[in-house]
Design a binder for these strands. Structure first.
Lengths: 338, 338
DNA sequence: GTGAAAGCGCTAACAG
DNA sequence: CTGTTAGCGCTTTCAC
């Protein structure tokens, strides 16, 4: 690996016998260059293997063509699928992506945002289970556009892309209730988080009320956030008396499904289960998990597209975008008639 | 979001009444600054909310404290776990991480590497199933250190971190053979790729030969690379007559496992299956997949650590690092006596 | 259509 | 211990 001295714009200007400005113009596609000189410049660029230095360019133009992605964890299938959508459209618009894992820790989220500001990113996509006040403050003062992907701002002030969590939860809970279950349990993440309490639980609650059921906290479980902790919580949901279960996360859902089956339950005969993220987990499980269908890739893609607009100072027609969700009937629910 | 004009090093120098150089010194922890002036500078920095501009710093110092990660796909659990290891030690050493997905396409890999060079990254971690000649050339001419993570360089010229694929494959094949299977099938990725043919298949082959079996290509399957394609290949492996199966990828393994069970096979009574990556898939499946144990997080972490050394111009004690693997006996193999 | 010149915000000798 | 002086490599007015 020889540290070759890269050619600079100066070198090509010299070689052709024009000024830096002219070279810069052809590199940036400025039309005010005579065709013949453009040719010569291009030839010299090719010959010298000249590659513009993006750092110098960033300093001079105050645009780095780099965006930051702040996410809980790359190894989480839900977030990694969003990230794939982000990355693909970022590349489409010639942006590079700086990724930071935060493990949902507000302190690290704030650090990540500030660090990204330091690196002069042109914009940020934020993903996280909760918009902590400190994070909100960091976002407001970061100086570049930020859009939320698969993450909710209860105040509705920030650009965001999500599905309608209330409606989705309402729908699957209703379906279970329609099937005659006396008790439908709900498994959520941290109940302090708005997305769980104000959105998901709200949808669940409304479905219960519409069906004339009382909301009983005995059927609310909020301590499971991955496969292992799902296994810990599963015995309690099994013993709760519930026969229908709606779950906010696929890893948690497959944990509960496996536990129930390992302990003799027949699915969906004894329990019906619906999960929420439609990741690969819901397909590889046996039986396959019925799920809310979320356009995860699109959520990321649309969020990134919105960010490009914001970075180009073009107004958003919609601040909080809601993408349509579906219900994917697989094998942990009984066949529906309708 | 008010685009606040950030304070520059010049502003704080002015406020305190010292030169840029002094401010730069305290920011960079240079000790040659009187304690009292350091205090004053720090106070001014705090008051102005000064944050060094990393782009300007990068241009002046020729170090961006940013590295690039070139990977097939973030949504692949194997690679995302490596990436998590990379990211954690990168942060530890104050590097940011630019991530690019390539879908294992050499053309995109080359583009990614060149683009990263343009962005003046200080180093690159490369992950991919195959080191294409074009990619190799790009790596050699990129001008910054590159280390391979979970990716093999048959020529042994590039720094890399892997497990011993030959030994691992030899081990699991041998175990199956020891259990008395007449025919052990092997499911690999693209056979044109060295990692499959020269490493994994070589280990499989050696095990067969040591056990006095002939190598028969009827038991070699190379068309499965994800869950869906695994389902496509599964009927053939079921009909092949093999009763032991070694698989190079967990998503593929769970696909085959599910297919076999869905078609009446008892696992591990009728078939024993061993997979290779020990991702979450091997834990959530029923029965749980026995697997080679790979220190995935560590492969990424060690690769990144090596990269930091290279970037600091400190020599590597070992070019091609081999991390230990294990065998994790779960439920798709019969209990072993030893 | 092209060039000259002034930075972008910072680091890094080099003096003193 | 501190200041001066050059740049880093490029974009961007502003003239011509």
């Amino acid at each position: 690996m020889i540290k070759k001295q890269n050619a600079t714009i100066y070198d090509v200007a010299n070689k052709v016998g024009v000024s830096l400005a002219t070279v810069s113009r052809v590199v940036n596609g400025n039309t005010n260059v005579r065709a013949s000189t453009k040719e010569k410049v291009l030839a010299a660029i090719d010959e010298l293997g000249y590659q513009p230095n993006a750092v110098a360019r960033g300093l001079a133009s105050k645009k780095t063509t780099t965006i930051g992605v702040v996410m809980p964890d790359v190894t989480n299938l839900y977030y990694s699928e969003l990230t794939r959508g982000i990355d693909d459209v970022a590349n489409m618009y010639h942006y590079d992506v700086l990724v930071t894992n935060t493990d949902d820790d507000p302190v690290r989220e704030v650090m990540a945002i500030n660090n990204l500001a330091t690196k002069q990113v042109d914009g940020i996509i934020f993903m996280g289970n909760e918009l902590d006040q400190r994070v909100l403050k960091a976002i407001e003062s970061v100086g570049v556009p930020v859009v939320l992907a698969g993450s909710v701002d209860p105040a509705g002030q920030l650009p965001s892309v999500n599905i309608d969590y209330v409606a989705a939860m309402h729908q699957i809970t209703s379906q279970l209730l329609d099937n005659g279950h006396e008790h439908v349990a709900v498994v959520l993440g941290d109940f302090e988080h708005a997305i769980n309490q104000e959105y998901r639980f709200a949808g669940y609650k409304r479905a219960l009320e519409e069906h004339g059921h009382e909301v009983n906290r005995d059927y609310l479980f909020t301590k499971a956030h991955n496969y292992q902790t799902a296994l810990d919580v599963a015995p309690d949901v099994m013993k709760s008396g519930a026969t229908g279960i709606v779950v906010y996360d696929d890893e948690v859902a497959i944990g509960i499904l496996n536990y129930l089956q390992d302990h003799g339950a027949k699915i969906p005969a004894d329990f019906e289960i619906v999960t929420s993220n439609d990741t690969n987990y819901s397909i590889v499980s046996r039986p396959q998990l019925s799920s809310i269908g979320q356009p995860k890739y699109d959520i990321g893609a649309v969020a990134m597209r919105m960010l490009t607009k914001l970075m180009d100072n073009i107004a958003l027609t919609e601040l909080a975008v809601t993408l349509p969700h579906t219900f994917i009937e697989r094998q942990t629910t009984r066949k529906r008639q309708d």
